[in-house]
């Protein structure tokens, strides 16, 4: 999506992976909370926690709602937080369209619950320093969110 920024202090290393269940609205948000608490324990600044929490939550909800389940992996370096969110969903046919604010494929039921504002991907982009999206119809979607503490 954007020009590749090399994180200072080396490539982030894998730390932990979390499963995300498809359609699990009741448990939705738990993975983001766990990720945020993990970063808090590592001593990342509140600003990093806030951005990571928001990006993680939006990505988690996308996997719950559209992705047919998947997982979130956390990679860490002293000056970089990387979240890799992969799902088994239908993929995103038109990524440029999906990145537009307000564009949504949410069902009426999802909207009923306060989702589907078309803010998910734009929100992730806004809160990350680098966002890479790999997707193709029928191939699932992989998001790589990089946050570099300032």
């Amino acid at each position: 999506m954007s020009a590749g920024l090399a994180p200072e202090g080396g490539e982030p290393e894998f730390l932990r992976a979390f499963d995300i269940q498809a359609g699990d609205f009741a448990g939705a948000g738990n993975v983001s909370i766990a990720v945020k608490n993990l970063l808090k324990e590592l001593g990342f600044a509140p600003e990093v926690l806030r951005r990571a929490a928001i990006a993680a939550f939006e990505a988690e909800m996308n996997v719950v709602m559209y992705g047919g389940g998947g997982h979130m992996e956390v990679f860490i370096a002293p000056r970089a937080v990387r979240l890799v969110i992969s799902d088994h969903g239908p993929g995103i046919p038109d990524l440029d369209l999906a990145m537009q604010e307000g564009w949504s494929t949410a069902t009426p039921e999802m909207r009923e619950m306060g989702f589907g504002a078309g803010m998910g991907l734009p929100n992730i982009k806004r809160n990350s320093d680098q966002l890479r999206i790999t997707t193709a119809p029928g191939q699932g979607t992989r998001l790589q969110v990089d946050i570099f503490p300032r």
Binding site: L15, E41, L42, G43, F44, P78
Partner: peptide
């Protein structure tokens, strides 16, 4: 007044978290 992280140095904190895991 946040609880202190695992280590003030992030590299050390990461190492400690791996050990905890």
């Amino acid at each position: 007044c946040p609880l202190p992280p695992l280590d003030p140095d992030t590299s050390q904190a990461i190492a400690k978290m791996k050990a905890i895991q």
